[in-house]
C-alpha cells in the first residue's frame, strides 16, 4: 500500500519557468492529484485563498513578493482560509542565518536547491508523518520552531509553558519512580537493571 497522493492538491509558487515545470513534473510523478501554480507571492496568495490547497511549495526569491512575505501573509492575514497549511520553502540559501529567517517567518520545511526527487519527497513525508504543533506568542505565529527537545540545551527556558512542562515532567517522574519496583517485578528485572522508555525518531532516508 502506498500514499494516496491523488487526493492531494499542491500549490507551487515559482517565478522561474523551467524550475516550475520541474516541480510540477516531480509532483505529478509522485501521483499528486492536482498541482496548481503561481508566478509570485502576490498571485500565489490570491490563488491560495481561492483554491485552499493542502500544501504550498514556494520559492524564496520572487518579484514583487517573495516566498517569505507569502508565508507571513498566509500565517497572519485575516483573509487567509487556512493559517496552518504546511509551507515548504525552496531556496539556494543554506546558511544558518537564512534558515533561521525562514523559520521565523513561519515556514514548515526548508528545501535547499539544487535538490533531488527524494529530497522533495522527504519534506512532504515529514509534513505528513511528523506535523508540527503551532505556536502563538507576542511576535510569532507558525509551526513550533523547536523540532524536538535538545538534550544538550543548557540555556534558559523562557516560555511559561516550558516551566509548566518541566514541573509536570518532574511530577510524572516522581510518580513513576514509586511504581518502579512493581514494574521491575513484572519484567523480572533486579534493582541494578535499566528500564528504557526511549522511542526512536522515524527516519525517512
Amino acid at each position: 500500500m502506498t500514499y494516496a497522493f491523488d487526493r492531494l492538491r499542491i500549490l507551487v509558487v515559482e517565478d522561474n519557468n523551467p524550475m516550475l515545470e520541474i516541480c510540477k513534473t516531480l509532483l505529478i510523478t509522485f501521483g499528486v492529484g492536482e498541482v496548481i501554480s503561481a508566478k509570485n507571492g502576490d498571485d500565489g496568495y490570491k490563488i491560495f485563498c481561492k483554491e485552499n490547497p493542502d500544501i504550498v511549495l514556494a520559492d524564496w526569491m520572487m518579484n514583487p513578493t517573495d516566498g517569505i512575505s507569502l508565508t507571513r501573509r498566509i500565517r497572519n492575514d485575516a483573509s487567509c482560509p487556512n493559517h496552518y497549511v504546511p509551507i515548504i520553502l525552496m531556496t539556494g540559501f543554506s546558511e544558518k542565518k537564512r534558515v533561521v529567517q525562514a523559520r521565523d517567518a513561519g515556514v514548515t520545511e526548508f528545501l535547499v536547491k539544487p535538490f533531488t526527487a527524494r529530497d522533495l519527497y522527504k519534506r512532504v513525508a515529514q509534513i505528513i508523518e511528523r506535523p508540527r504543533q503551532f505556536v502563538r506568542s507576542e511576535d510569532f505565529f507558525g509551526p513550533d520552531r523547536r523540532r524536538k527537545a535538545d538534550e544538550s540545551f543548557k540555556g534558559t527556558y523562557k516560555r511559561e509553558t516550558d516551566i509548566k512542562q518541566m514541573q509536570n515532567q518532574k511530577e510524572r517522574m516522581k510518580e513513576a519512580s514509586l511504581h518502579m519496583g512493581e514494574l521491575r517485578q513484572k519484567a523480572g528485572l533486579s534493582k541494578g537493571d535499566k528500564i528504557s522508555f526511549g522511542i526512536d525518531d522515524i527516519d525517512f532516508s
Binding site: 487526493r7 509522485f30 513525508a125 506535523p131 504543533q133 503551532f134 505556536v135 523562557k158 511559561e160
Partner: peptide, 23 residues
C-alpha cells in the same frame, strides 16, 4: 522576560487524506 506562548495541535488532515505506506 518569560514569554507567553499558546500551543495548538491542528488535526492532521493530510495523514487522513493520504493514509500510510509512503511512495
Amino acid at each position: 522576560p518569560k514569554r507567553n506562548a499558546e500551543f495548538f495541535t491542528p488535526e492532521n488532515q493530510l495523514k487522513k487524506k493520504v493514509g500510510t505506506g509512503g511512495l
